[in-house]
Design a protein around this nucleic acid. Structure first.
Lengths: 224, 224
DNA sequence: AAATTTAAAAATATCTACATTTTTATGTTT
DNA sequence: AAACATAAAAATGTAGATATTTTTAAATTT
């Protein structure tokens, strides 16, 4: 989905996806064509194309002749996504340890360092965005070691589906010193296992790392 | 992608996908809008929607303002898809053994039986289709044991991407008694491992089972 | 004369505005 | 109150307009 594109459909896709993930369009909301057209100033055709894409990514649901809605967020879906994602990422990390070269190790260590240095930032607003960006970059650097475009694609797809749930967790975590410290330790343990070329240990740590937010998110969903 | 839908876009999607997989549209072919419109008697809007879907499934490529082409088939992509798929399916089968219940076991045994009985069919033409259908059903029955909709989705996505390559292999296999017999043994060993609740063994067998076509497909690609 | 550049024409992709069909809401009748 | 009819709203599709790219031909340069 990434070309140098300026088609109306591509613009609509990006805007809409962002607004669904950041909650501007809430789960269950009806995505009225007339409203979307005026909101984004994009015609019905390209808008349909964008919506259709998002349906296949499970962020939007469609019923024939009855339009589109923002996909619901449910406890069950969250647990499934997180479980699937953790298992997939555990697989990927195992392959990464087996297949990753020195260049890969260097990248991982670099990103780990950048992430660890994030507590030197003061502004609370920036903090969330910067930590999130670097955290993502760190994990992506690890995953890339598997050298499988297709596995990385699947990973990205599951990541997008997790993103709305993940946002809930992020706010809780980034503004808690203890939670951040815990994450820092998990990351360090992960890096140690990677450098040890201990695939099984790295894989197990990654699974645990990705599953740890589940109980917190679970509570946050229940509260709403 | 499965509702009770009769929208033009959905029809276009199904037809186009089928024609790409069965080779009516060859890899690299330009998918000319004017041609597609007349061929399928569907307007440009819905057709774009369908094409756009297929781009996200990697069966079609798009360049902005320059239209759509059938995605190329390459050695590298084939190896990546098969490797990713085998690893994913190995993961799924491990989970299936751990999570599957009696109902699941019964389904698997049923499908295995139906598949084994396929050599009673005479017509060569039917043979390919029937064996393929039952083979797919057998593997799907196994996979369902993992009880994860998301993992099954990812599995299906990779399956669709493999399908064009798989078609090459299928013709070689189904019409060779020895190849069929080999597959029959692999399936039997797999079922035995499943019933033994031997997750690691089942997982390893599944990986090998899915990787075994790679060398044959590799040669077939090289020939073209 | 061959190669390269430029300009015009044709082909093509993409978008917008309008038309059609279907669904939903409202009001009416039994 | 249930069933039906009517009107409004909305989704979907079509056809034509617009913008971009590709091709073709001519003109210029080497």
């Amino acid at each position: 989905m990434s070309e140098e594109k300026t088609s109306q459909a591509a613009i609509a896709y990006d805007l809409l996806k962002a607004d669904i993930i950041n909650g501007a369009h809430r789960p269950g909301d009806k995505l009225l064509m007339s409203h979307l057209k005026t909101q984004y100033d994009i015609g019905a055709g390209p808008m349909r194309e964008a919506l259709s894409q998002l349906v296949s990514e499970r962020l939007v649901t469609a019923i024939s002749q009855r339009g589109f809605r923002v996909a619901q967020m449910t406890q069950e879906e969250m647990e499934d996504i997180y479980d699937a994602r953790a298992h997939l990422e555990a697989l990927i990390v195992r392959l990464a340890v087996e297949r990753g070269d020195e260049q890969w190790e260097a990248e991982v260590i670099g990103k780990a360092h950048t992430l660890a240095r994030v507590d030197e930032i003061n502004s609370a607003e920036d903090m969330l965005n910067i930590w999130d960006m670097r955290h993502k970059a760190f994990h992506l650097a690890i995953a890339k070691g598997c050298s499988s475009p297709k596995l990385l694609e699947m990973r990205a797809a599951l990541f997008d589906q997790a993103e709305r749930y993940r946002q809930l967790w992020l706010k809780q975590t980034v503004f808690s010193q203890s939670a951040l410290a815990a994450k820092r330790e998990e990351h360090q343990a992960l890096v140690d296992a990677l450098l040890d070329k201990n695939a099984e240990r790295a894989s197990a740590l990654m699974y645990a790392h990705l599953m740890s937010p589940v109980s917190i998110i679970s509570e946050l969903i229940a509260e709403n």
